[in-house]
Write a protein that binds this DNA or RNA. Sequence first.
DNA 1: TTACATATATCCAAGACGAACATATGTAAA
DNA 2: TTTACATATGTTCGTCTTGGATATATGTAA
Lengths: 224, 224
Amino acid sequence: MEQEYDPNAYDRPSVAVDCVAIGIVDGQPAVLLIRRDQPPFAGHWALPGGFVAIDESLEAAAVRVLRKKARIGAMPVEQVHSFGTVDRDPRMRIIAIAYRALLSPVRIAALRLTVDQCLARIGSDGRLYRDGQPIALAFDHGAIVAHTLARLRSTIDDAAFALVPERFTLRELQQVHEAVLDQSLNKPAFRRRMLERGGLRGTGDFEGGRAFRPAELYVQRPKD
Amino acid sequence: MEQEYDPNAYDRPSVAVDCVAIGIVDGQPAVLLIRRDQPPFAGHWALPGGFVAIDESLEAAAVRVLRKKARIGAMPVEQVHSFGTVDRDPRMRIIAIAYRALLSPVRIAALRLTVDQCLARIGSDGRLYRDGQPIALAFDHGAIVAHTLARLRSTIDDAAFALVPERFTLRELQQVHEAVLDQSLNKPAFRRRMLERGGLRGTGDFEGGRAFRPAELYVQRPKD
DNA sequence: TTACATATATCCAAGACGAACATATGTAAA
DNA sequence: TTTACATATGTTCGTCTTGGATATATGTAA
């Protein structure tokens, strides 16, 4: 920060947050998008975003955007990266700070998507698909999603718990890992690693209604 | 980003970059600080920072700040995190985007520090010391340094090459790892890991002038 | 010539991991 | 009622990585 400089004397960039709300849909990672109805990029899909108010923290802005634009209730968000290329928005200079939110199955089921909203599947190629058709994102939002997914992969051991039901089997946990990492994992090794990791607690209850041996249900153990 | 909203109609936060220039001094990590001469925090040490111009990318702003405020020539910088607490600056709302720069020994030797600049040692406790005396940082700059050092630790395998001379011995490389991680490392295991990592190339030359067996000098192998 | 500190190379044990296999247990089909 | 089946759960084994100890090599300096 400087002293000899009055920021009010010069044009200033605007600051916005863009929210990358990720969940697992049909065994694959998906991201919540909103269709734009105004230029630029009218008709394109975009991340829900909004400007940061003068008296509002960055996190609070991200939570507000999720509530207002996607009717997603209060939930933890995590900052991913800031994107500040001069021409990333053709209208004016906007610096976007990307925030990640992880949607549990309950949150996904509670979504009431309008025709201008969708959960777009994130393909193995990094592109986004809606009903199997590739879609183009507005602005640099494709890069923002890619960056967010890469970050999610590097922290999946912790993040996966936010993407499974409150009570989950080791199979479900592994499937979430595999969906995010986009690769299959060795089952015994995965079980060993998770159980020795210390973040799990068995409930003694078992899943039911499946045509095979029921698996024990686990919950995330609160960190000491 | 929104459509129904005119950001010019409302007060907007200012955007600044704060630079965390880290190097190894006397075998310990140190960060470049500048002493403030104006309130708030007059007399306190602070990170070099500056406002982002309307037609300037975030990275360019960080590079400019390093050049103008620390006479550090063009060098790669890496974004760390954005800090946006509403009251982090008592004067006005400023969102700070932290950038990290890694100072090689040559860069450190080329520094011509004024009395209002210093290279503060980062202690094991995370606090900063100048001439052995703990110093207080302005604003939330202490948290910014701590966050940056944590990030550096998680990427030290790549980052260490920017903190050693162009030609370096494996001992020097290990000492940089140990300084940043603040823990001693097993020597044979470190050598194995580095040599099998593929990022090194032996020069066939050896260091001299030491009262022990000379070690081979290595250079970082350009990634294919 | 010898002492010494470090470089470099091996060796071994412990732990992490992948893969294969064996047994257990529910539903559903025969 | 019995059998097939898919998965859960647990075990074993070989491989790879890593930490630690050890042995030899090689320069400066006493």
